[in-house]
Design a protein around this nucleic acid. Sequence first.
DNA 1: TTTAATTTTGTACTAATTACAATTTTAAAA
DNA 2: TTTTAAAATTGTAATTAGTACAAAATTAAA
Lengths: 139, 139
Amino acid sequence: MKKEEILKLFKEKGIKPSFQRVEVFKYFIENKTHPSVDEIFKHLVKKIPTLSITTVYNTLKLFCQKKLLSEILIEENQIKFDFIEKPHIHFKCKKCEKIYDIFKMCSIIKCKEVNGHKVEEHHIYLIGTCKECLLKTKK
Amino acid sequence: MKKEEILKLFKEKGIKPSFQRVEVFKYFIENKTHPSVDEIFKHLVKKIPTLSITTVYNTLKLFCQKKLLSEILIEENQIKFDFIEKPHIHFKCKKCEKIYDIFKMCSIIKCKEVNGHKVEEHHIYLIGTCKECLLKTKK
DNA sequence: TTTAATTTTGTACTAATTACAATTTTAAAA
DNA sequence: TTTTAAAATTGTAATTAGTACAAAATTAAA
């Protein structure tokens, strides 16, 4: 994703492209992970020494409101963030703590109504032992 | 659920039935809600004036390990707890903040394996506007 | 160039959770 | 019954994520 594309996306969403905001966004497309606020801050402060943690919080909040990112709350007392491409669910390994994106469909994800309640968001978390950790324990 | 049944359940799970533990457990069966640590503490401290918040944390952690309760992490900076009866998912209303139990099945809940990862727990959260709040806004 | 609006920064604060040592309770052994 | 050891509870202090907010800096418009 090139800079012009980011600027175009920001414009569509009504986000003013400050240097800090573009850098935070770039973090997500360059590192396809599920970072915490702290990880993002620690990474970007190397490049932007004046960066404030409050800016990171503000920017992530804005991106979530504009549906560029979504929050992940999975067995942690720390919010992680997720770049929204196509709908997916998350798997977290209890051993290595890694979070995997799982692109698997399910009736729940499509449902817009349940017991009369209007559904606007779906968050599906699976927890267990990942492929790699299963292999390690077998050895 | 009578006291003898609670004691029997604790014995099965290998939980020593201290007065505090029994009272915390009773809170869940008497109030079918999704309480936070603070709510449980504030309620029980009336009956047990010497109760410590640390004991509540310890007890809830133990109950989660023993699979009597599970943690709910849904759009909050506060963990809530859920009594495990039969598998269900959660719906949270954005307006009134209430959490509903939804007893609806889905292929994801049954799945024990995904992309080679071994699945041990499922947490499904739906967020939106609940039936009651929808009615209120229509008026 | 001036002005207003927006964004960023930095500090102080709050609230949830954890660490840990001291005390109390419980259960087992003598 | 008394002694001893183990487990649970308590209370305090510390940690940490996140928020509030005002001042400074930046941007865009008049």
